[in-house]
Design a protein around this nucleic acid. Structure first.
Lengths: 346, 346
DNA sequence: TTGTAGGCGTTATCAA
DNA sequence: TTGATAACGCCTACAA
């Protein structure tokens, strides 16, 4: 007797001399069942260690009560905050959660989407990989009217709802701030420009410069994977330039911090020689010295909103959203890494 | 026609004038099927947008090909590394992953375990919440011989396999290092002493002290939730003490960093006035200045090993492990926060 | 308030 | 190499 036999509603019904229909109803708290029988059923279920068989149930009712999440990488403060937010809602609404990482690879993403589809998730939450060229692989979901929502890294395609922040505006604000600090030669470290979050941030930077009649030097653009190490590597490149930039705006905090530390190590004064700004308001930004100027990006809230919106649209069987995107508010956080003392003291 | 009808093997069989049995076999690449028919089936499946129904399948074969993960909180570098490690294996082995957070609450954990049980995960990976008093809630799994493995925060109970590091030894090493730096009055910031990781670290600290004939001052023990803010709060308490400790060993890096920053803000020199050490080797530890002395805790590897071991035991139907625990190696990383210059320079 | 019976989509056994 | 058919455990008309 390695495996105890699985107990089913038949067993409960037999013990109680009831029909399985009644047992099934009692188990689901159907008001049509007399409360006395309900109690008997529940007690018997308990004592027999009964557990519902969700497959059998799903096979009938055709929904899995799970939602899928596909993200590039779990390993960042921002992303784990988002997941936390999602999880807080799904748990409350008793949805399961299937999470998978694309590791920034388009192929992985495609594979993951397929798996999610076969697992019949009731809905999908996605943040796109660096390498994804399009969103064709989500077609099966659209065909079956299973809602798909993109968050953070989204795609310009009216079929799906996008939940994002106004990256362009945020980048504009942070650049304007740098300009106000007297910076004119601003370098930019970005991720994959295929992804809207990064292209929009770059756009915001360029718009702010343009509005202040400053031209962007294309040599000052660096594409990386945005890790701390990547930031340090860019710093090394910057240090070898004939004319140093007077500011670096990195599209993510990790990268900004790596860059900052490396520049400091080389003897440069931050922010007086080079001002630095990041993006995300990762906890690391208040640990580095000087503290990093950044944009507060509400990851947890984004997760909450994404999950809530998805679940609503699952319940409403609504797969075409009236709105095409939901924009969350951000906030410029000015800190020491960009506040030049000469300006600061006047 | 809101929802396209779901296509099944019956549809494929009908179109091809085959029996569902043959279709089913073809789909699973059964060698008993002629390769020509196999090809026809596959093509038809493709063109009809067929997808297997995993419920129906699971209902028959009785395994879900998913494993459950219950953790206190996703939101830390360590934990998301572990999950990354787990995910890297489960994806390769084509297992799904259901993740849920207990938020350090025992009740949540109990609820999550129940959900996992009803979802019939094939196995469970758990890191215990601060508040969990026992592991009774895993009994249903044991009864059904479904393997459960604890990692990081484990429980002394021979029924389950524990994957951990030697916390005591690591704490001993780090304490000994502090003593070698001349520290005698070492404060300790811990989490919940109910959890072995924390009680063991505390034990290691006390053993090292004892071996050097130093007595631990119970006023120097602080229990917190180990956040950066908690670290700062403890620092404030420390600053009000008559006799300052000459070192702080925090059970997690975040907390150590919060403490370090606050002490610095108060004008203390790190490490000369107070040396600081943490635990985990979070990236934050090399951002703070001075860099934090800490223990390298291989989160990703732990995830890999946990997942691999679990999957093996699922395949072997082995729920009683010969070994009761697997211990991973750690490493003391000495950095500026504890290297006193007086010693350093001699 | 309870029971009967058919079906959800697969897989597996037995037979052809 | 293929086919017929009986489970798997639950839900839900419909009937009683």
């Amino acid at each position: 007797m390695n495996h105890e036999a699985e107990v089913t509603i038949y067993d409960i019904a037999a013990k109680l001399n009831l029909s399985i229909a009644t047992v099934s109803r009692a188990l689901r708290d159907d008001p049509a069942v007399k409360s006395k029988t309900k109690k008997r059923v529940l007690e018997m279920a308990e004592s027999l260690h009964y557990r519902t068989n969700n497959f059998a149930r799903s096979l009938r009712v055709k929904n899995t009560q799970t939602i899928g999440v596909i993200i590039p990488k779990l390993n960042s403060y921002f992303m784990s905050s988002v997941i936390s937010g999602i999880e807080s809602i799904t748990t409350k609404e008793s949805y399961g959660l299937i999470i998978s990482q694309s590791a920034e690879s388009g192929d992985n993403e495609i594979r993951n989407v397929k798996t999610m589809f076969n697992n019949r998730v009731d809905g999908l939450l996605v943040s796109l990989a660096y390498e994804s060229e399009n969103v064709k692989h989500f077609e099966p979901f659209r065909r079956k009217h299973i809602p798909v929502i993109f968050f953070d890294r989204t795609f310009e395609d009216s079929h799906y709802l996008n939940i994002q922040i106004d990256n362009r505006k945020a980048a504009y604000k942070i650049t304007e701030h740098l300009i106000q600090q007297g910076c004119k030669k601003i370098a930019h470290i970005t991720g994959s420009l295929k992804r809207d979050v990064f292209s929009e941030r770059f756009m915001g930077l360029k718009m702010a410069l343009k509005d202040h009649k400053i031209t962007f030097n294309e040599d000052h653009l660096f594409s990386t994977k945005n890790s701390i190490d990547d930031g340090a590597a860019v710093a090394k490149k910057i240090l070898q330039m004939k004319h140093l930039p007077d500011a670096v705006f990195a599209a993510e905090d990790d990268c900004a911090v790596g860059c900052l530390l490396e520049l400091k190590k080389a003897g440069l004064k931050i922010p007086d020689d080079i001002a630095i700004a990041g993006f995300n308001n990762d906890p690391i930004s208040t640990v580095v010295e000087p503290n990093l100027t950044t944009i507060n990006y509400p990851g947890f809230d984004m997760g909450v909103i994404a999950a809530r919106t998805l679940i609503n649209s699952i319940k409403d069987k609504k797969t075409n959203f009236q709105e095409n995107s939901i924009i969350l508010a951000t906030e410029l956080l000015v800190r020491g890494s960009s506040l030049k003392s000469s300006i600061h003291s006047k």
